[in-house]
């Protein structure tokens, strides 16, 4: 019984984590290049809406995903234009994008589909479906422990989920094993040095923010086309900020990002499942406390009580070329 509960919890963890992973990795690209991004939430929301709207109109999940990426990318470019070209305040720009997305998705959704800010329910062919890996059922019946794990956790996920988990080593590889990644990390620490080497700081940062936009779009598409069948008003529900928290919690490194996202995803799943259920030793935990836990943990981490999170040194500062 306990085993079944744990397995269910882990299964929901895997369900809710991918958008966090995509969004946190998105923030990772941008912030490691020195551009803070508070706007993960907004880009994800816009992506979710675009995916839901496009998929229901075109009857194609793939087109939904592509439109989500394009819309999120456009918002990322606004952020890039404001914070790189115009040297504006990056946090202000991110906040602006969150509001624009929050308002526009509702207004346009209501005007276009007239369902109270929702997009039409997506049919089976218009959304992502789960992939069953071979022998899942058989393994579950014949192999103890590992069989059910294989059936529930590894098999039967959306292919976007597999993509999310694959993005982690890929991001690590890009960041630490490619020339682009080296330069991206350098431009976040010391843009002047990169500039001296004859590499365009502007172009590098633009590319980093574009990676950010693409990943946020996928995160949004996951929400409205995989986790749910269609967009609902405000469906990101703070996930962009949780992803931001996870990014800080992971100290801006790809592999810890995965674990931070899984931890916060687990807390999310735990909070939903454990509502009103008394736990051994601690007694009944208020659901609100579990909900607030990711934020509390992040504040505690930021305060330096468990390790220390040091952001990229040039983060948040617009680069002005010396003349």
């Amino acid at each position: 019984m306990v085993w079944q509960t744990i397995l269910d919890l882990l299964e929901s963890t895997v369900r809710v984590s991918p958008p966090l992973i995509f969004a946190a990795l998105a923030g990772l690209f941008s912030e490691r290049s020195g551009i803070f991004d508070i706007g993960l939430e907004g880009k994800m929301l816009a992506g979710a809406f675009a995916a839901g709207a496009a998929a229901s109109v075109s009857h194609s999940a793939l087109i939904g995903l592509l439109v989500a990426i394009v819309v999120s990318l456009l918002l990322a470019l606004v952020h890039a234009f404001a914070s790189i070209t115009q040297r504006g305040n990056q946090i202000v720009s991110g906040v602006a994008i969150n509001f624009i997305a929050a308002g526009a998705t509702v207004i346009l959704g209501q005007a276009w589909f007239d369902q109270g800010g929702r997009t039409p329910q997506l049919a089976a062919g218009e959304r992502f479906t789960t992939v069953d890996l071979p022998y899942a059922q058989w393994a579950s019946n014949h192999i103890p422990v590992l069989g059910p794990i294989y059936e529930h956790l590894i098999s039967g996920q959306f292919w976007l989920t597999y993509l999310a988990f694959a993005m982690v080593p890929f991001t690590w590889w890009v960041l630490y094993r490619t020339r682009f990644g080296l330069r991206l990390r350098a431009v976040g620490e010391n843009p002047a040095a990169v500039d001296t080497a004859g590499i365009s700081v502007t172009w590098l940062r633009y590319r980093a923010v574009m990676c950010d936009g693409i990943l946020c779009g996928i995160a949004g598409a996951y929400l409205s086309m995989a986790m749910a069948a269609g967009f609902t008003k405000g469906m990101t529900a703070g996930r962009g900020y949780i992803a931001l928290a996870a990014l800080i919690f992971a100290k801006w490194r790809p592999v810890p990002v995965l674990f931070a996202c899984l931890l916060f995803g687990f807390l999310d799943a735990f909070g939903i499942r454990m509502q009103g259920v008394p736990l051994p030793i601690i007694g009944q935990v208020p659901g609100q406390f579990v909900q607030a836990l990711p934020y509390i943990l992040t504040v505690v981490l930021l305060a330096g009580f468990i390790g220390r999170a040091i952001p990229p040194r040039a983060g948040g500062k617009p680069y002005v070329k010396e003349r």
């Binding site: 990056q90 720009s93 308002g103 509702v106 207004i107």
Partner: peptide, 26 residues
């Protein structure tokens, strides 16, 4: 105009923040 709800203000708020804040020097 039932299409234009209060959420319109959220957009305007975002745009004001964008243009008067992040793009103030444009």
């Amino acid at each position: 105009m039932p299409e234009i709800s209060r959420d319109m203000i959220v957009i305007i708020q975002g745009l004001v923040i964008l243009f008067a804040g992040a793009l103030e020097n444009m």
